[in-house]
Design a binder for these strands. Structure first.
Length: 427
RNA sequence: GGAGAGCUGGCCGAGUGGUCGAAGGCACUUCCCUGCUAAGGAAGCAUACGGGUUUAAACCUGUAUCGAGGGUUCGAAUCCCUCGCUCUCCGCCA
């Protein structure tokens, strides 16, 4: 949620900034709502004050044993009107709130302006693209004999799922283990295990709701209550500080978790339908940091390096881009994407997305810390994949394949694979 | 699933219809005192959103908030209803 005061005072600037990311701010509607709110709020508060004062007098008179009949009648008529105003106020405040909840974050001024991914800024390319003296297979063909089973997954669940067996299943697990171990042991994150089902308040807090409910899986808890499957553990990790006033010296908080993520992919029919690039369920190691405002951009760069360390350890070629204003997610003020080389597609594909949300989520979450002056300051929240496990598996399989359709296990994963160095055909 | 108890400010905790946004304590901040490793004294100390005012901070003032939502009432932390959560006992269970 953007700052209401900023929106009031710099409306034109905000509108311009939002236009860069493809959001058209309805200024007239906003002013109209604000005016309404103001009028109703002032009237409501006036009448509440009157009622409260008179009611208080009744108490005083009664204590003295005086007659209160007349004044009680007077208040009764006021009370009836109060109710109407209170309802009106509630309605207009809800409208205003809804308006605010649907506005995306403002891009940081270092973000390249552009309407889509074509304007993303290439920061660096690391690692050499492998050359093969045979026809490369994609991970689906390789996986056929190694244990990636899409047909069984389709039978039991439908499209966009995978059933893994044998050493591929183990490699998949090894990748996740290695990533989270690295973040805990080398990057100073706290390992977390979180719920995969969360309430709507949590999704509102991180910004998936109210706008992007169509991408979420919804489950029924009771007749009155629903729970959502997390689309990323950013939701459960970041919401751990919802409604909290944190100690200043507890910051920064660094959290990481390896969890499945669930996405309905409602808007992407026909895209990446082959293989496991885009699934309804995939594992991801997530990094989350909660920082003081003045430290968040330093933390963003740190988190980028944390994710890069994983790719370098896995010896996968990748590039880093800064997303343009039009390509960023709803809550982000600045985002780096890391894209890993996928030989069969002859291109780099996103494997990590690292964002600074500044105070956009914190405002929704009411996550603050108390500073030395005793003031409550909204924290900054950051999140990043470190990394997507499924896509890492794809990248490893394809980049490390040999002419026999086997996959060389990255050195750092060997210890998670019972010391093995290669994955050969499953029996 | 059954029975019972509870949910109050950063924390603990008093408060069962009327100057209660809420005693007291802890923690914290500032000041005072004491020649000493700690004790005593004074004051301040919830959040959100309005209005006034100011260069601004501060300040003044109003409204709302005592798990959430609804109801009764002139008036609700206090009474009633629904829901959520926590705890204890029983049952079931990985």
């Amino acid at each position: 949620m953007i700052d209401l005061n900023v929106l009031r005072e710099n409306t034109d600037q905000v509108k311009k900034s939002l236009k860069n990311r493809g959001y058209e701010l309805d200024v007239d509607f906003f002013h109209q709502l604000e005016q309404q709110r103001k009028d109703i709020q002032i009237k409501t508060q006036e009448i509440q004050q009157e009622r409260n004062n008179l009611s208080k007098q009744i108490g005083i008179l009664k204590a003295k044993g005086d007659d209160t009949e007349k004044i009680m009648q007077q208040v009764a008529s006021i009370s009836a009107r109060t109710k109407d105003y209170e309802i009106q106020l509630q309605e207009v405040q809800q409208k205003l709130n809804n308006f605010l909840l649907n506005i995306p974050n403002l891009p940081h001024n270092s973000v390249p302006v552009g309407s889509n991914e074509k304007s993303n800024l290439l920061l660096k390319k690391i690692g050499d693209i492998p050359k093969f003296n045979f026809d490369v297979k994609d991970h689906v063909d390789l996986g056929n004999t190694l244990g990636l089973d899409f047909e069984t997954a389709t039978k039991i669940s439908g499209s966009r799922f995978v059933f893994m067996k044998h050493d591929i299943a183990r490699l998949h697990r090894a990748i996740g283990q290695f990533m989270i171990d690295t973040h805990v042991e080398k990057h100073n994150y706290i390992e977390c295990y979180t719920p995969f089902l969360v309430n709507s308040e949590s999704l509102l807090g991180t910004g998936q709701l109210p706008k992007f409910g169509h991408d979420l899986f919804l489950t029924k808890k009771t007749d009155n209550e629903n729970l959502y499957l997390i689309p990323t553990s950013e939701v459960s990790l970041t919401n751990s500080v919802r409604d909290e006033i944190l100690e200043e010296d507890s910051l920064p908080i660094r959290l990481t978790a390896l969890t499945p993520c669930f996405r309905s992919e409602a808007g992407s029919y026909g895209r990446d339908t082959r293989g496991m690039i885009r699934q309804h369920q995939f594992d991801k190691v997530e990094m989350v940091q909660i920082t003081k405002p003045e430290h968040s951009y330093k933390a963003l760069d740190e988190m980028l390096s944390h994710a890069e360390n994983i790719l370098q350890a896995l010896e996968l070629p990748y590039q880093v881009v800064t997303l343009s204003s039009g390509d960023m997610g709803f809550a982000a003020a600045k985002t780096y994407d890391i894209e890993v080389w996928i030989p069969s597609q002859n291109q780099y594909r996103e494997i990590s997305s690292i964002s600074n949300c500044e105070d956009f989520q914190a405002r929704r979450l009411k996550s603050r810390y108390k500073n030395a002056d005793g003031k409550n300051i909204l924290v900054h929240t950051l999140n990043g994949s470190g990394l997507a496990v499924g896509r890492a598996l794809v990248a490893i399989m394809e980049n490390n394949q040999n002419a026999h359709g086997e996959v060389i296990i990255p050195k750092v994963l060997s210890k998670y694979m019972n010391g093995n160095k290669i994955i050969t055909k499953a029996k």
